[in-house]
Amino acid sequence: MTHVMHEGGPPDGAALARMIIGIAAERDRQAFAGLYSHFAPRVTAFLRKSGLPANTAEEIAQEVMLTVWRKAEQFDPARAGASTWIFTIARNLRIDHLRRARVAASAEQVEPEEIETAPSGEVLMLASEREASVRAALAALSDEQAMVLRLSFFGDKPHSEIARELGLPLGTVKSRVRLALGRLRALLEGET
């Protein structure tokens, strides 16, 4: 079996979405290889940044990619882009892992995505529009605000972690997180 890896730059969002759809439609292993080479190392990096040890991060990243294969039919490009969808899978498996580590594994799992699923009838903003505006808003943040946002997004204990990384007092960090989120909100709502 041959797996064609991508030559040149990384595939764009539309190409990644087509790969997931290819898995859903035809169990396309070449598409899976493309997704794997792009996302597995990134999901591993995300899980490590959020505090998991290296080997656990890789195990869960592996499980994330297998979930992508199994649940490809559930991917809806009108709801979320490929990266966002795979991010939520990684987030949910990370939560499951941390809970299993804390409690006996006997309990039934409730998937957070089920809790968050919107009741029918809701008009959703098109995922492509939302992702384009989020991308533009993130690009418009100052370097410091982008870093504060990144650290508070990935960190399990946001404020104390940022305080340590930036060498700032906790109170200062709290107000900077608020400012960065306020700026992001203003950008998303079209103010400047």
């Binding site: 990134r42 882009g81 966002t84 989020v134 993130l138």
Partner: peptide, 15 residues
Amino acid sequence: AVGGVLLEKIAPVPM
């Protein structure tokens, strides 16, 4: 979606 963008931009860790 912010999570998706950050995942895109993160420095990959080789498997």
